[in-house]
Amino acid sequence: MITDANVRDHFLTAVRQRRSFYGINDEAIVPDERIEEIIMEAVKHTPSSFNSQSARVVLLLKKEHRKFWNITAETLRKVVADPEQFKATQDKMNAFAAGYGTVLFFEDQTVIEDLQRQFASYKDNFPKWSAHSSGMHQFVVWTALETEGYGASLQHYNPLVDEEVKRTWGLPDSWLLIAQMPFGKPVAQPGEKTYKPLDERVKIFK
C-alpha cells in the first residue's frame, strides 16, 4: 500500500493529464534506456486474468518507427482508391511518423487458447479478458510516457497491417496486433476535453 500522500496525488495527476497528442516530433526527451524500462515495467506489472501474462509489446524507435508508418501508409494506399482522400490519410501517417517511436501492443493467442482448453467453462470470456488486460497495458505505457514529457495517441490500423508487420519484424503468427501508439515530443496541445456529469456515470452506495 502507498502511504505517501504526495505519491498518491502524483499518480492521479498523471492519470488526469494523460491526453491524445497528435502534433509530435522526433526530439529525444529521455534516453532510449528509460523508454525501454517503462515498457519492461509495464509488461511485468500490469495485471492479466488468471495471471496469464498474454501481453506482447514491440517498441519501435527512430528509423524502425518510421518504417512502421511507411508500411501503414502503403497498405492504406491500396485501400483508399481516391487520390484526394488518400492525401489526408498520407498527411496523418506523416504526422505519426514525425514522432520518436511507436509502441505496438499484441496479445498472444496461444496463451489464450491454452487457457480456453484448461478452463472450458470460461472459454468465451478469455478473449474479452485478454482485451481488458491489453487496454490496461496501453494505459500504463501511455501515462508513463507522458510523465516523461512525451505526447502519445492510440491508433488501430490492425488488421490491415498485421501480416506485413509480422513479416517485417519476424514476429510469431500467434501474436494478434491490438493497437499502435505513436509518441514524440509534443509540438501542439490537445484540444479541449469535455466530461459528462459524473453523477450519471458513477453510483455510490454506503
Rank of each mutant, 00 (worst) to 15 (best):
3 T>D: 09
4 D>C: 06
4 D>M: 02
5 A>N: 08
6 N>Y: 05
9 D>M: 11
9 D>G: 00
13 T>G: 01
13 T>S: 13
18 R>W: 07
20 S>P: 10
21 F>D: 02
22 Y>W: 08
26 D>R: 03
26 D>K: 04
29 I>Q: 02
30 V>P: 11
32 D>N: 14
34 R>L: 14
35 I>D: 09
35 I>T: 10
38 I>D: 04
39 I>A: 05
39 I>W: 02
40 M>K: 11
41 E>I: 11
42 A>L: 05
43 V>S: 04
44 K>A: 13
45 H>G: 03
47 P>A: 12
47 P>I: 11
51 N>A: 12
54 S>D: 11
54 S>P: 01
55 A>L: 09
60 L>G: 09
60 L>S: 11
63 K>W: 00
64 E>H: 10
68 F>V: 10
70 N>V: 10
71 I>L: 15
81 A>P: 00
89 T>I: 15
90 Q>H: 14
91 D>A: 15
91 D>C: 10
91 D>H: 11
93 M>E: 11
93 M>C: 15
94 N>L: 14
95 A>C: 03
97 A>H: 03
99 G>H: 02
101 G>E: 03
102 T>Q: 06
105 F>T: 08
106 F>K: 04
106 F>H: 07
107 E>T: 13
108 D>L: 06
108 D>I: 09
113 E>L: 09
114 D>W: 00
118 Q>F: 07
121 S>R: 12
128 K>A: 12
132 H>T: 08
133 S>Y: 00
134 S>T: 14
135 G>H: 05
142 W>M: 12
143 T>V: 09
144 A>N: 13
146 E>P: 03
146 E>G: 02
148 E>N: 05
148 E>H: 06
150 Y>I: 10
151 G>Y: 01
152 A>S: 15
155 Q>I: 08
158 N>P: 04
160 L>Q: 11
160 L>P: 01
166 K>R: 15
170 G>Y: 01
170 G>V: 04
175 W>Q: 03
177 L>Y: 03
178 I>E: 08
180 Q>V: 07
180 Q>P: 10
181 M>E: 12
183 F>R: 03
184 G>P: 07
189 Q>H: 00
189 Q>R: 06
190 P>G: 09
191 G>M: 11
199 D>E: 15
202 V>Q: 09
202 V>E: 11
205 F>M: 09
